[in-house]
Design a binder for these strands. Structure first.
Length: 277
DNA sequence: AAACATTCCTGCACGC
DNA sequence: TGCGTGCAGGAATGTT
């Protein structure tokens, strides 16, 4: 679920609902996430204000008072919900409410993650830029830094499938499995194509459609494929607008040909055999 | 019951 | 030969 659009939607909602609040206390019920949570996290965040909510790639960056910051990654199945009295838990199994932050207005920020592939890490704000998770990330696709020329250069000589490179966080930050298929459909390039064989024009279309698809998805509040919910517990509305993902055998929205599925780099990929070369 | 929205690690092949 | 890089495959895990 959580690729860049879902994390950005989350960031925007939290910036309105939680920024400026103070964390009164925190409780860690399960610290075995992708990496074990440090024991000091709960005590260290208590009393700190939530100053700003940022994002880099698929990482949510919560700036706290006193020069500290929380780095949050949702993995495959994570969610961070802002709950107050009357919050409908919906699909959230309370057994997977692993970390909870109580805020000064009585609301709670709850990190829920059934598969525990996610990450919560407390660090000094000054250390963020050099953090192992963020160092080495490619350009942000919505910043304009992910240009046609850049992608063209990045693909030269590469034998891996173009979809694999589009999902490589070192090449461009934030594109995951769902949006990679959507971007390549709009660009008219098959996900299986060797990256080194992508033409300059195709690289240009991919670079152009990447921010376009991601922006549209953010506008729709992200994509709910199975269980994703935003911080208010709402599903994303972009799933209705997916043109190829999870549509194997269904007609292409452009030409009517049956959408095909292929495994590329271990990941399920979808494309139109007629529109994508 | 096979598949899965993400990332990290290992091991092999290749080229300089 | 040795080293770095690219790439494939698998692992982590619970749910549907």
């Amino acid at each position: 679920m959580p690729e860049l659009p879902e994390v950005e939607s989350l960031r925007r909602i939290l910036a309105r609902s939680a920024r400026g609040r103070t964390i009164v206390s925190a409780a860690v019920r399960e610290k075995r996430l992708r990496r074990a949570l440090g024991d000091e996290v709960a005590d260290s965040v208590a009393g700190r204000a939530i100053v700003e909510i940022g994002r880099r790639a698929k990482y949510l960056l919560i700036e706290l008072g006193g020069g500290m910051a929380l780095m949050v990654h949702l993995g495959m199945s994570g969610s961070l919900t802002h709950r107050r009295d009357g919050f409908d838990p919906g699909p959230f199994d309370p057994r997977h409410d692993h970390v909870e932050f109580a805020l000064d207005d009585g609301s709670r920020l709850v990190y829920n993650d059934p598969r525990r592939f996610g990450l919560i890490k407390l660090m000094r704000q000054a250390e963020l830029a050099s953090a192992a998770e963020l160092r080495g990330l490619g350009p942000e696709p919505l910043s304009g830094d992910f240009s046609a020329e850049y992608f063209w250069r990045a693909t030269r000589g590469r034998k891996a499938a173009v979809k694999t490179l589009l999902m490589d966080q070192r090449i461009v930050a934030g594109v995951g499995n769902i949006y990679a298929s959507e971007i390549l459909f709009r660009a008219g390039v098959r996900p299986t194509r060797r990256a080194g064989r992508v033409t300059r024009a195709e690289a240009g279309r991919i670079a152009a459609h990447t921010p376009a698809v991601l922006s549209e998805a953010i506008g729709g509040g992200g994509t709910t494929f199975r269980s994703y919910r935003d911080s208010r517990g709402q599903p994303g509305r972009f799933a209705k607008r997916l043109q190829v993902y999870d549509r194997e055998g269904k007609p292409c929205v452009t030409c009517g040909a049956a959408i095909r599925q292929a495994i590329v780099g271990q990941r399920s990929s979808f494309y139109c055999p007629h529109c994508q070369k």
